[in-house]
Write a protein that binds this DNA or RNA. Structure first.
Lengths: 345, 345
DNA sequence: AGCGTATGATTAATCGATTAACCAGTTAAT
DNA sequence: ATTAACTGGTTAATCGATTAATCATACGCT
């Protein structure tokens, strides 16, 4: 910056003012400075700016477990949304453990992030971290900034299956302590209506009892007239799907299967998976916008008034989910022939 | 820092020396300063340090496409390896496009990263970016810093299938321009031996001709006596698997299927997928170590000697891959009964 | 005693950008 | 005509940590 100033015989303050458009500089001079800056390939030093302004223009993204298959979508959306408004994204993985998560958060804080986006793990408590925090979980969680409307998503798949004539459902969850999963299943149940039946199983509990790779015992449920299996994630839907196929049960002719999240493999498995898609880009946009708004209001850090919000609030806290009807869901099998055996390929 | 100095009546330079262990400070005083620092909850300012030292302690991770299902593993491993040696990780997604990638890289540079880890997309050229770059691709790519030994991995699965008695193979690739995939397939072919046959299909080409969700036409190959299908990714193996199951073909009784990468769903589909696992943690460790070594040698930026390396070199450039034998691969079906129909479940 | 050498700590400059305070002209207003 | 207000710019302080240069003692050795 001082090089530009020297080259044009002005002071560096003027250069700063010209480039930031803040002080009073003649339009003429602004042009010259801009041109010179380009010419010299000037790139503002983040360190210098950060030191002076106390802002790093970097946000932290805290994830419960990066290896979650949904993470790519999240990271991509957050990175795009942040970079659109001039922020970088520093990642931190807490590998499931709550203690690790606390460490991860402090590492980010020490790095001087201006704000945090947290995808919480059950049991996560965000203490006072000294910077704005956006939380992306589910609308029913207190402090949630913005998230997909998982309840509505559940309702949408369920209604789809009901419309197809299904009456007997198996709902497949993974972790009974997850708010997101509970909302999804809650939404499903709310839409099932009076003349249907449903059973819910939780895989984590099941696997704890029977081992990691045990069969899910789907056949029993099907013998019990279940014709639709709705899972809270495509990962579990996939597990269901392949288990059924191995047992020779036709999807969707005998049983319909649905998932959630529209993971990358969902469109390409056979039959392609009916699922519920979340608009992560929009969620990210809202979360980042809320965060940035808070950051740029310039918190006087010490002043912790009585209404010290733990997390920021977005314009909208729910983003609608979209049902993706594909090949794994179809009309309920007629009850007359519960076990069709013909090669209906 | 000056607060600590004031509180103990010493100069801030002494505090700096004490905490960094660089200058000469009496052991006694070092203790007192450490204690005071803890007491005051001192956290060094990254901005101040970065400004003075010219180092940000942040690395950039450039990915061709975050939505790649392998990305979680990569990001997690890189983040862990970096944070172990005191670095943060800033992500940048290039969404497949080469132009976007260039932009993403400059954004990272402007943010002042000390080094870059690039997972290149075919056609990626890393220009002179002014900081050390580690490239993670495949050993056969010029400039590759470190990566899994994809060729060896291919050889391992192929040998496994040969040992099971298979003689007629279908190799499934996606993108014929990908170095990684070519190495994997090359490795497979190298291990197939003389009295076997194989055909290779490339999904991208296929899908271009027949549409995104077209059948892969596996049945024809199987009628042609193929008993083993080896894909270059679990994603494609999964597609193969479900397509076979829908057609009523038993895996592994009639046909064995293998994949690559040990993606998150691979152990839980039915049958669980035989695949090749890469030790991403070790790859990340080597890449980061190479990068950090280069960074901390302190490049005099201007001095671009004739041997200006484009990318850094790691101690080892190949990391062995591990074969994970699971349920989707089994002995070759006896040629006498190419189409067993009994319910051998 | 006198000289050289460690030891332990201080001073002050520096990195690059921002910004409050100030200054010198010019124009407008009373 | 004198003051007020505006314009276009400059000065200098500041953010926090690092580090070369320097200084003041104390110690060891002949």
């Amino acid at each position: 910056m001082s090089m530009i100033a020297d080259a044009l015989g002005v002071s560096s303050a003027t250069v700063s003012n010209a480039l930031s458009g803040k002080g009073r500089v003649s339009a003429n001079l602004v042009d010259k400075i801009r041109k010179k800056a380009d010419e010299l390939g000037y790139v503002p030093s983040n360190a210098g700016r950060a030191l002076r302004t106390g802002r790093s223009n970097v946000l932290g993204l805290v994830l419960p477990d990066i290896s979650n298959p949904l993470f790519p979508q999240i990271a991509q959306a957050m990175e795009a949304a942040a970079s659109n408004v001039g922020y970088g994204v520093l990642i931190a993985d807490s590998r499931g453990k709550v203690t690790t998560q606390t460490q991860a958060i402090s590492r980010l804080i020490e790095r001087g992030v201006d704000g945090l986006v947290v995808i919480p793990r059950r049991g996560t408590r965000i203490g006072d971290v000294g910077c704005p925090v956006a939380m992306v979980d589910t609308p029913s969680t207190p402090g949630n900034t913005v998230s997909a409307d998982h309840w509505e998503g559940g309702a949408k798949v369920a209604r789809h299956l009901v419309d197809l004539g299904h009456k007997n459902f198996l709902l497949v969850g993974h972790d009974p302590a997850s708010n997101v999963q509970n909302d999804r299943i809650g939404g499903m149940k709310s839409a099932l209506g009076r003349n249907t039946r449903h059973t819910t199983i939780w895989l984590e509990t099941l696997m704890h009892e029977r081992g990691e790779r045990a069969s899910l015992g789907l056949i029993d449920h099907i013998k019990n007239d279940v014709t639709a299996i709705a899972a809270v994630s495509d990962l579990h839907a996939l597990r269901v799907l392949t288990e059924l196929q191995t047992a020779g049960i036709k999807v969707p002719q005998q049983v319909s299967v649905t998932g959630f999240d529209d993971l990358i493999f969902s469109p390409v498995v056979t039959p392609s998976l009916t699922t519920v898609h979340m608009d992560m880009a929009r969620i990210a946009e809202l979360a980042i916008a809320a965060l940035v708004r808070e950051i740029e209001q310039g918190k006087p850090a010490g002043q912790n008034g009585k209404a010290a919000k733990q997390t920021v609030t977005a314009d909208t806290s729910k983003v609608s989910m979209e049902l993706m009807v594909r090949a794994s869901s179809g009309p309920a099998a007629s009850p007359d022939a519960p076990f069709p055996t013909g090669e209906t390929l």
